[in-house]
Design a protein around this nucleic acid. Structure first.
Lengths: 162, 162
DNA sequence: CTATCCGCAACTAGACTGGTTACAGTTACA
DNA sequence: TGTAACTGTAACCAGTCTAGTTGCGGATAG
């Protein structure tokens, strides 16, 4: 199983896209994700290293998107927070050299697993944070969660209560 | 990372395909994989539950393929040894209900991750154990590993030394 | 009856994940 | 200049997963 860091990182970026240029604190995001602020900061560090967010410490600080949400794909996010370039593990210890299967199996498997990995990644590459935000907006408008007193537009813009 | 059980299971099945109808013991396979026989038997148990191999205890016993190697795809193997039907983890604990992002993020992510998973699986579905065996045979013939005294055909059939 | 197999439970060490506390560094602002 | 609000990071913990290992009961052929 791929760790929940990818899901949380997308959540973080979607939250920031939702808030436009308003800097958001790790504590605020942690409340939305329902976790500890340090967990958010750890993931934010990876996103910062990958150039997706810019972070400012100090009073009134927080994080904002460093690029437009339409320029951040889920593949970017996946690669930023999930280290290692392989999806499938090969043998834990080297197979027998005195057996034809043992000698060649890894060289046969490697390109197959690589293709499978790339197929998965290509789906992630087709989805951007902007897409995620748009789908979310659709659900907010359709679902009419919470109190539906305000217009859907206002909901989309303002409703990010802790 | 997906565990090495998939790679080992393919190794096991390729080994059995290599040996045709000869029953192979877990100890023999373990020597080729370079691990403990119990590890092989655990994986073999999953393959047996999935109807890919049939196992016979007792003297002269061992495992043989229950179907033709061309009827076993790597997707079958993956599903047999890797439990859980999800590739990506979602949030470890439920996001905030009082935040629009928290309320909807999982429903937006789930189908995206599902598509990515299926794309990966569809690559595995296109490769069979027979394909793996054939690629291995090609490498044995081309590579000329070990002593090349015997013909490649003989190598392919006989060279499975401990 | 015995040697050779498998099946399974139990235990281990190591790695990884997510959560938590603690503390140093940076910044805005009174 | 001091203070409050932030981030960054190290350290530690509990829980889970992985792979390896031992041990033993049960099946089977000869």
């Amino acid at each position: 199983m791929i760790s929940s860091r990818v899901a949380v990182a997308v959540h973080v970026l979607a939250f920031m896209a939702w808030k436009r240029r308003d800097p958001v604190t790790s504590e605020r995001i942690a409340a939305s994700v329902n976790t500890n602020p340090v967990v958010v900061r750890r993931i934010m560090g990876a996103l910062r290293n990958a150039g997706m967010v810019s972070v400012q410490p100090g009073v009134g600080g927080g994080a904002t998107l460093a690029r437009g949400p339409e320029d951040i794909t889920l593949l970017d996010v996946y690669r930023a927070v999930e280290d290692g370039d392989e999806l499938f593990s090969l043998h834990p210890s080297e197979p027998s050299r005195s057996c034809d299967v043992g000698v060649h199996i890894r060289d046969v498997l490697r390109p197959i697993f690589c293709r499978a990995h790339r197929a998965m990644e290509s789906v992630l590459a087709e989805v951007t944070i902007a897409d995620v935000g748009q789908q979310m907006m659709g659900r907010v408008q359709a679902g009419g969660c919470c109190d539906a007193a305000e217009s859907a537009e206002a909901l989309v813009r303002e409703r990010m209560g802790a």
